[in-house]
Design a binder for these strands. Structure first.
Lengths: 333, 333
DNA sequence: AAGGGCAATACCCGCTCGGCATCGTTGTGA
DNA sequence: TCACAACGATGCCGAGCGGGTATTGCCCTT
């Protein structure tokens, strides 16, 4: 019996759906069904009443749920504590986030890492820059958008955000609840500088064109983004929580609208150098991943769409220990 | 990461020896060494300072130990609770022990099971009788001596007890600290009735003869055992804690002596019907096993001797859930 | 100097778990 | 009313994890 079984149980109990729970666990539905069946067999009771249409906790499952959560909580806490005991040269970590990271996410990351006594050095950078910083050792952990070069890096499973559109509250399009990319046609698009992430930049524009939106002009994002949006009737593609970040100024006068059918998605991973996914760094990577995942607006795994188009399969990580073990252990000298 | 790694860590920390810890975990030493190395790699720190002569906790290991224990404690408690949630027809279990079970073991078993709200029905019986009771369904769990017929039963790993000799405190042999089987030659032997466990009975006598002790008479053990020992200068082979059981009468006048080189050992397993090692029953089996194991005088696993003679290899159990699952799951109807 | 004890390493194998494909059922919309 | 869509269960397969045995290497003892 493994603590994983409890995680599976809790995931299903929270999603009340095997398929959704499986997605949030980054696995497929059949093995999850089996693991739950195994657990039920072991415990000698049914945890869920399930039909093909509905999944409900049985009374027994209901009673068990909080205890399972508690066991997981304690276990994770100990593991985190153990990992952060690591005698890293120091307890400092440099972590890079994309500039448009929402404030709420940053706050929870900082809060949780401070509780583990980590000194954080925050860096703001796009994918290309982050890759350089990671490679140069100037940053320990990066949060970056796909696609990026994964060589030598350990990347978490991708998290998905559906992009919408930010416009001035008085913009003509603000009348509509959901926008279509075509609706944007008359308006200029604000984009981050292409050099900061050429692949993503190109893909976003491709998607726009494919859906019939060819921006009349493209404006460089920068300090003046809000001004562009107000004075030029420009639009910018962004995930829902983007606005949350900009408590500073003008937030009230901007508004966000989702895109019909989520035609553009952002995939994000938490990343560190492969050989450093261990101890303190690993603890922090896991914590950051959880913070992102639990933030609303981050889907744990690309929805069905992904497996149909076959694009961006996520490879499971092989555990590092096996590889590590093969090298001389250089201990007990 | 699995809770097992914590168990391994704690076992090594308690034994301060990989070999001993491995034995107490019913596994061999090499895999344990690797699991610990893996854990250290994962955490990014050394848990033990080890040379070929000594194993010590590092400071980090020292700090971690109590937390690891706590995580295990919580996890096991939840698992026990979950298993005992099982809607067994009732919360009653019939448990059979060999008559010579020490009182201390019985007390801890009863205490722990009562804490799980189990109603216990204790039965006193030797192996042969226990097998009948198990097969007939009149008893749910048995604690019985090897060898016994394992068909249809799920048996825990065997626990070992070294037999010594109980004699009257005034017996001539009481002068010696350690006895040799040959020393017993002049004295009659008290044995349980052969029908209660013919194989064990025969093996014990074989061992005696092999070591040069051919009892002049064999007396049937019963209510009058103590009297035999006092009036006939008889001897009885028993594990160390046997005396603890007999708080009733005469304990003071009897005494126990170990046998030089532990020539005779008792192997005991906790047993239930294979298909019932699940839910409440499984919880109880595990609890009883732990109680026996933690009682001093029960070695977790036969010491090196066993693997040399090659006798009584213990087979690992395959998990039941897998097999169970293959039958129609008859749920969701 | 030889031997024994112990942890580490090499190598191997079986079981477990997760993946894909498919089925059966149920609810839904044309 | 029928076909389809959604979902959980099942069959089957491959990979990797974890454990087993044999062996090495180190240190201490005699």
């Amino acid at each position: 019996m493994d603590i994983k079984q409890f995680r599976y149980f809790v995931a299903v109990a929270e999603a009340l759906s095997f398929a959704r729970a499986a997605r949030s666990l980054n696995m497929s539905q059949p093995p999850l069904s089996r693991r739950i069946a195994d657990l039920e067999a072991d415990l000698g009771l049914r945890l869920f009443d399930r039909t093909s249409k509905k999944v409900d906790l049985t009374p027994a499952g209901e009673t068990l749920l909080p205890y399972a959560r508690e066991a997981i909580r304690v276990f994770d806490a100990v593991l985190r504590a153990a990992r952060s005991l690591s005698p890293s040269r120091s307890r400092q970590l440099s972590i890079a986030f994309p500039p448009e990271t929402s404030r709420s996410v940053l706050l929870s990351v900082i809060g949780r890492l401070q509780r583990e006594q980590v000194e954080i050095n925050l860096v703001e950078a796009y994918a290309a820059e982050q890759q350089r910083l990671l490679a140069a050792g100037e940053v320990d952990i990066g949060v970056l958008r796909h696609p990026f070069d994964k060589r030598g890096l350990r990347a978490s499973p991708p998290l998905q955000q559906s992009l919408g559109v930010i416009i001035d509250a008085k913009h003509p399009l603000a009348e509509l609840d959901k926008l279509n990319l075509k609706d944007l046609s008359p308006y200029p698009l604000v984009q981050f500088p292409r050099t900061h992430g050429p692949e993503l930049y190109d893909e976003m524009l491709d998607r726009c064109r494919a859906a019939g939106y060819v921006p009349p002009r493209i404006l460089q994002s920068g300090r003046m983004t809000a001004t562009f949006l107000k004075t030029q009737s420009a639009v910018i593609l962004a995930a829902a929580p983007f606005l949350k970040r900009r408590g500073e100024s003008g937030t009230k006068e901007l508004t966000w609208r989702p895109l019909e059918g989520s035609p553009i998605n952002l995939y994000t991973s938490v990343v560190c150098r492969s050989d450093e996914y261990v101890g303190l760094t690993r603890m922090a990577v896991d914590v950051i991943f959880e913070c992102l995942q639990h933030d609303e607006a981050w889907a744990p795994v690309p929805p069905p769409v992904r497996s149909r188009t076959g694009e961006m399969k996520f490879k499971k990580h092989r555990s590092l220990t096996r590889a590590t073990r093969r090298q001389p252990a250089n201990q007990a000298r």
